[in-house]
Design a binder for these strands. Sequence first.
DNA 1: CTAGGGTTAG
Length: 626
Amino acid sequence: MLINRIHRSLLHYLTGSSHLRTPPREWIEPYIDISDLAHHSPRDPQPSPWLLRILSLLVSSSTPEPDLRSFCGSFLIRLSPCFVAAALRHPSLLPHPAAAVALFRFAAAQPSFVHSLDSYISLLHLLSSSPPSAANARLIVAELIERDDLILTPAAAGSLLRCLASLGLVEELLWTWRRMKECGVEPSLTSYNCLMDGLVNSGFVDSAEKVLEVMESGNSGDGVRPDVISYNTMIKGYLKAGRNDKAAARFREMSAKGVDPDKVTYMTLIQCHYAEGGFYDCLSLYHEMEEKGVEVPPHAYSLVISGLCKESRPFDARMLFDKMSERGCRANVAIYTALIDSFAKIGDEEQAMRLLQEMKDDGFKPDEVTYGALVNCLSKAGKMDKAMEWFEFCKANGIVVNSIFYCSLIDGFGKVGMVDEAEGLFSEMEVKGFVPDSYCYNALIDTFAKAGRIDDARSMFERMEREGCDQTVYTYTIMIDGLFKKHKNEDALKLWCRMIDKGITPTPASFRVLSIGLCLSGKFNRAMKILDELAPMGVVPENAHEDMIKVLCKAGRIEHACKLADEIVDKGREIPAKVRTMMINALRKAGNAELAIRLVHSKIGIGYDRVGSIKRRVKFVTLLSL
DNA sequence: CTAGGGTTAG
């Protein structure tokens, strides 16, 4: 509306049909530099900045075409191809790509208007930058491809390759490549790199590899040999495809070929290792950068410090942080938060608090993530008074608390057995309008279950389902554990089956809870059967047998432990010697040294008896009659 | 108007 008023007034002024000699300043000032008006006429064939600015306002308004039509009509001008190309080249004048498309379309609809190559390229540039819009770009390129009268120049071809590569429009990229040849444009090193990037971005890693091989073989034209960017692009591609070994091989190979890895090479690798939890690899790559004198980008510090924090090595992280600061690299809220979280997680409240103060002194405002981390760690440590103090501090000081705070606190109160407080916080959260997510439900259900209030746990579980809140493997694990503790074995087993039926993949932890529950109720055959069913689902609990035997021994059910051990050996699931060691360790740990020693000095598990004429392994159950 | 990498809490 405002735009319409401004432009109507401007049109009147500019076309001389207004009684106003000059437009009121407040109409125009926010949009254009008034001093421009004095020096330009709207009939000027060269697009002046203010004319472009008005045009951009028009095309970004809600009804661009009629506005544009009246604008052009009032000026008695026709948009010329060079004017449109110039307008499209000014991204600051066209902040919305949709507006650029509108102008492009409007111009094309003018009688006898033909877009220049520059217009296509400028528009594609806009569509490939933030936020990229591959679908729109594809339509524009399709029109470009139809235009066989357009001749690609080296600069235009290069620009086109870059847009198409970053948009991942591979077919269009290959068309450009062919068209370049037709127009006699020799691909440069940059062209090759763009081609590789385009292939990599759309998942054609093998094709990118072939391009790189052509470059290496020297069949790619004069002086075109892979450089550090070629290798970086290839490495990015391998990592994207999960082929980390090939990435590592290229990384080693490039140095051998005289191409030194640079900061982007290292960043690409560090980023990938970070995402996969390979924090040790991040650190060694960082050290390599130091040794080789490669410039360390601020983000590399961020990732390596965060990695050390996640590895529970806050002191090492702190040392690197100091080094970073010495080098003049400014920290940020995320790094401070990671450090505070890490110190708080290892229980070093003093260091955490010191960093919080340093952070403020450094000019950073701790945010809800920072305080959220603090509240979580204090809750995990059972320091509920302090956790609540910080929580109240946030509420009083304009820090937006969220369901994560509530979840941490509910979990903390639950762990120290303060069920009423946990329940109270859950209701407070709801009253304040937060919709509890699965984390919050899990925390409260766990609280109830641990306190033996299984019916309350169950009703929350059902409410969760009713309200469509995502029930995860954690939810089921908590419930199954709680049900076994109340000896509701059948219900627990039913819940396990329901979880499987819902397509929720069990975790080793969830099977641990189930198997322990089943074993303690004497149903280890059932546990073994379920264990067998896990493998096809891709779940392999590492120490399942050991866990089961351990828990049976601990509960003093030696007979059952022996039966289970025999079962495992009879079915050939473990090497007998290993099961023997498991039994010995389990008995020892359960404080039953006497039986453990007896087992050590016997032939049980590894020796054989002759019963009748059949040779039979000495059963673990014979341990009980020794 | 031609290339490559980017974070913190349950």
